[in-house]
Design a protein around this nucleic acid. Structure first.
Length: 462
RNA sequence: GGCUGGGUGGCAGAGUGGCUAUGCACCGGAUUGCAAAUCCGUGUACCUCGGUUCGACUCCGGGCCCAGCCUCCA
């Protein structure tokens, strides 16, 4: 049975959907004012795998995955101003870029991708409810704030106590707030700022309220899983709980999942530190599937250290798997052999999505293929390998495409390589080993490795 | 200061109260014209100090170190 580490209880729990016929998951997506970096790639890939596995377990018609897009906030306004362009043009551009990255990484489309600007009515309605119920108040400056002291369970998710937070030195006091811990639900617009009409005047939503409004609108007041990066645990998700449960009077989410950070030199990768690599940059150097493999090679809650060495390692590992799949392009993914491996794979995934352990099973299957003497049995094992690979979003391209793919766009094209191979084959037929080795070394220098097999010479790029 | 999580072999990274992780790298052998790939095989480990136990890397306690949250961030 699937067990998931629930950040609300800080332990692994058996996953029991509210309605097995409709498992519902909401993940906090991107704020679209810049290119996505590897930290964003991790959220996309990690929850893509969660989604794929939920579909495997409950059936793809019985899972609803919602990932939102934040397309209005202070940073977007600021960036649009800097660029001297409208926010729609800015966010539209970066949504396209995000989709390009996600597609490259083999991330499936969520069932819904709600945007904040498309749900103003739901946002305003929820704020209205909070004001009515006494959980929120309109300040003199036109802002509306959430009154944290009114919500009994505030701090439960992040393990914080209101008193400790109050004692903290780093909380800036805003004059309009009754309490420094209160957070904004509705921000009054300054002239020139994008704004929507509301009972409290023209303005825009605070960051947290959009997720409460969109998630409950798309998935109902009470749903199964809410995910996002660990940095959203506090205050974003804490505030979402406070807003949603105060507004609906119901439990908001059963299971909270947070993926760990991507690090560079033992330090968190983040926009504010400026130590981030964009997905696009990394894809200049490495195939998207290598990046995906790398992300899944550590458990989603662990930190993930980013470095060329790790990416190189991922590439080598993936090369081993694809090498085993050579000659099985036409084999369709299917569970057709070796149920022990399938069961071990599932056991790994059932254990809080242990993808590194699941990858181990992939190697065992590759190993088995290599050892098979019976071609039919080898095909069955290959089919199983592809099937399990698909659950991780891996191993779905043709082995030759992966092995011969041009990573950095350097090196000779395939026609030139094939021509040299023909030349070398002639030389070898004449036992002209010097010429044969010269050609092989020449290609080696250009990043092409030749392999003489019983069926002729094959090649791949380093 | 308050609160989290973590310290495993050359690197990465799972896991377990007693029995091979795995990948990459390395070494020996098979194979090969020589290689590459593959196969067979060897080696290297569990931060530190105590405790519990027949037995702990695995459980408990102290210490040291690292990362993160407490402010925008996936």
């Amino acid at each position: 049975m699937l067990q998931i580490h629930n950040n609300l209880s800080k332990r692994k729990e058996p996953f029991r959907p509210i309605d097995p016929a409709n498992v519902r998951m909401y993940v906090c997506g991107m704020t679209v004012y810049d290119m996505c970096h590897i930290g964003h790639a991790r959220v996309l890939v990690v929850f893509d795998v969660v989604y794929r596995y939920l579909c495997e377990v409950f059936g793809s018609d019985h899972v609803t995955y919602v990932r939102n897009i934040t397309d209005i906030d202070d940073k977007i306004i600021q960036r649009a101003r800097e660029n001297d362009e409208g926010i729609d043009s800015l966010t539209g551009r970066y949504i396209d870029e995000m989709n390009r990255d996600a597609e490259a990484l083999g991330v499936l489309h969520p069932n819904q991708e709600p945007r904040a600007t498309g749900h103003m009515q739901q946002i305003i309605d929820m704020i209205g409810t909070l004001v009515e119920k006494g959980y929120a108040y309109a300040a003199d400056n036109g802002d509306v704030y959430y009154d944290v002291s009114h919500f009994e369970h505030y701090g439960r998710l992040s393990g914080k106590h209101i008193e400790d937070l109050r004692a903290g030195e780093r909380i800036a006091v805003d004059e309009a707030k009754q309490d420094p811990l209160d957070f904004v639900l509705w921000k009054a617009a300054k002239p020139e700022e994008p704004a929507w009409d509301s009972p409290w005047g023209r303005g825009r939503p605070g960051w947290h309220i959009e997720c409460s409004a969109m998630s409950t609108h798309c998935l109902g007041h009470h749903f199964d899983i809410h995910g996002g990066g660990l940095d959203l645990q506090f205050p974003h998700h804490e505030n979402e709980i406070a807003q949603s449960e105060a507004a609906t009077g119901e439990t908001f989410v059963n299971v909270w999942m947070h993926n760990g950070f991507v690090r560079v030199d033992e330090e968190k990768m983040s926009k504010s530190l400026g130590n981030f690599f964009t997905i696009r940059d990394v894809l200049q150097q490495y195939a998207p599937e290598v990046v995906r493999y790398f992300i899944l090679s550590s458990h989603y809650r662990s930190p993930l250290n980013y470095s060329d060495q790790h990416l190189d390692n991922a590439k080598a590992a993936l090369t081993t798997l694809y090498t085993a799949l050579r000659g099985f392009e036409d084999v369709a993914p299917a569970i057709s052999a070796d149920m022990t491996c399938v069961e071990r794979f599932r056991a790994a995934m059932d254990d809080d999505f242990n993808t590194p352990e699941a990858q181990v099973v992939l190697f065992e299957l590759a190993h088995e293929i290599n050892k098979q003497t019976d071609p039919a049995a080898a095909r069955q094992t290959a089919a199983t390998l592809k099937y399990l690979g698909a659950l991780l979003g891996l191993l779905q391209q043709s082995p030759e495409a992966f092995l011969q793919g041009e990573g950095a766009g350097e090196g000779p094209d395939s026609e030139a390589i094939e021509a040299l191979i023909r030349q070398r084959t002639d030389a070898r037929a004449n036992k002209d080993w010097a010429e044969s080795d010269r050609i092989r070394d020449l290609l080696r220098e250009q990043g092409v490795i030749l392999e003489d097999g019983p069926g002729g010479t094959t090649w791949r790029r380093v």
